[in-house]
């Protein structure tokens, strides 16, 4: 979905406005034409119960990403303007990247035994009716 010469990244505008509908999560798996959530790289969860509000966990496209630093096979390549791209053929499924991400934004596909990495395509943004997430264009 990235157009040439444009690097995009997801950002959270205001998680207080999030209603917890999780449409972003379903959208993320639906990119592959499947239902459910196993392939989703974004998570909406409560902060100690729905009564305390919600938070959106997604890759924030670090400029110096810890997940890439701990990857023993260089399967995670640093993206221009932040974030990483996964080369599945190099990944050995060690899970170091999951443990290195303090915000919990590296998810795990237990079927494939590989991480799920957000590619900042912005498909989820289309389904966020409350504009909690948006796509920033970096130039």
């Amino acid at each position: 979905m990235n157009r040439s010469n444009e690097i995009r990244r997801l950002s959270i505008t205001d998680s207080e406005k999030c209603v917890g509908c999780q449409l972003c999560m379903f959208a993320c798996s639906r990119r592959f034409g499947i239902g459910g959530l196993e392939k989703s790289a974004i998570l909406v969860r409560s902060v100690g119960g729905i009564e305390r509000g919600l938070t959106v966990v997604v890759c924030r496209a670090c400029l110096d990403p810890p997940c890439a630093k701990v990857c023993p096979t260089r399967a995670l390549r640093i993206r221009k303007y932040g974030g990483v791209l996964l080369d599945k053929s190099k990944c050995i499924g060690c899970g170091n990247c999951v443990r290195a991400c303090d915000i919990g934004a590296v998810f795990w596909d237990s079927g494939e035994n590989k991480p799920i990495i957000c590619i900042h395509c912005g498909y989820c943004v289309r389904y966020c009716h409350y504009n909690v997430i948006r796509l920033e264009v970096m130039k």
Binding site: S29, G33, I34, G35, G36, L37, E38, G111
Partner: peptide, 14 residues
């Protein structure tokens, strides 16, 4: 749980 659910006609589903 967070399993995947396969869909027969992916394009039509979307």
């Amino acid at each position: 749980g967070k399993q995947s659910i396969p869909v027969r006609d992916k394009k039509k589903y979307r």
